[in-house]
């Protein structure tokens, strides 16, 4: 069993234990005339603040506040735990008040984006590690331009050397667009190697019409196509890894606002205790 599996089992069991404890407490409260909503509400609010404070922790790397790894573990498991506490607190999956429905939607979206992010952060890195060298995200546009320049040089050289324009024509028709820039949003959502394979096939097919000099150029184009595709892949996947946080953090502060307002309302309009 790997270290991570052991840790996952340990943390998940702790979470289940904690949730069981909370369920037990809520049951005990509900059995009496006391309301558990205030208790679970405060627990949720505290959890939301704790979860949001991870962002603050990241801004304070120079304080000995514990390692980010530990924070993330807490963040993940407390975050998943809040779903359970939320269910205990709200009772229904869908509250009927406007404000509370808005709060629930924000909460579900925040947790959902977090879970999506968790999935992405655990699945994308191995994909990236398999494809090419490490490429820093910020440098990708520059690399892309470099690849394009190299491809154009290759084509121009082969035209100059051979005098034939077969490769150049092919480049203009099929490869120019490929080298020109980033891929579309569809590739961002679901990157496939279809285009690369198609281009490779077509280049393979066109080879028989090429002169010897052009063959050499074509060979180098092969490498450049591969390089460009790798760049696109890194671009798309790293972008996804960065973009999900936009949603997650953006929702977080809205959630905090709504939760605080909801708490205020709950207190002000509370009629449970004489």
């Amino acid at each position: 069993m790997s270290f991570f599996t052991r840790r996952r089992i340990r943390n998940a069991s702790l979470l289940v234990l904690a949730l069981a404890g909370i369920v037990w407490w809520v049951r005990a409260r509900e059995q009496t005339l006391d309301s558990s909503a205030l208790g679970t509400g405060y627990l949720l609010l505290a959890a939301v603040f704790f979860l949001a404070s991870y962002n603050v922790r990241k801004k304070l790397p120079f304080l000995p506040l514990g390692g980010s790894t530990a924070w993330l573990q807490w963040h993940i498991y407390v975050g998943i735990g809040t779903v359970g506490v939320f269910a205990l607190h709200a009772r229904t999956a869908w509250p009927s008040g406007w404000l509370e429905a808005l709060l629930a939607v924000t909460f579900y979206l925040t947790v959902g984006s977090g879970l999506v992010g968790l999935y992405l952060t655990r699945t994308i890195p191995p994909q990236l590690a398999r494809v090419s060298d490490e490429i820093t995200y910020e440098r990708i546009p520059a690399f892309r331009r470099q690849v394009r320049r190299q491809a154009e040089e290759v084509v121009l050289e082969s035209v100059a050397a051979s005098g034939a324009t077969t490769l150049a024509d092919f480049y203009t028709a099929r490869l120019y667009g490929f080298f020109a820039g980033a891929r579309g949003w569809r590739y961002l959502v679901r990157p496939t190697s279809a285009l690369r394979r198609a281009l490779m096939r077509e280049m393979q097919d066109v080879r028989r019409y090429l002169s010897e000099q052009e063959q050499i150029g074509c060979e180098r184009l092969f490498t450049l196509v591969r390089r460009k595709d790798d760049l696109d892949f890194h671009d798309a996947r790293q972008k996804v890894l960065k973009l999900w946080l936009f949603g997650h953090i953006g929702l977080t502060y809205a959630l905090v606002l709504l939760a605080v307002l909801h708490g205020l309302l709950a207190h002000a309009f509370h009629g449970g205790v004489a």
Binding site: K58, K59, P61, F62, S68, T121, I124, P125, P126, L128, A129, E134, T136, Y137, Q238, L241, K242
Partner: peptide, 18 residues
Amino acid sequence: NLDRCTRCDDCVRACAAT
């Protein structure tokens, strides 16, 4: 460990902040 690194640059930013 590139299988776990999400390229979030937290390490670089922490380094810069300190």
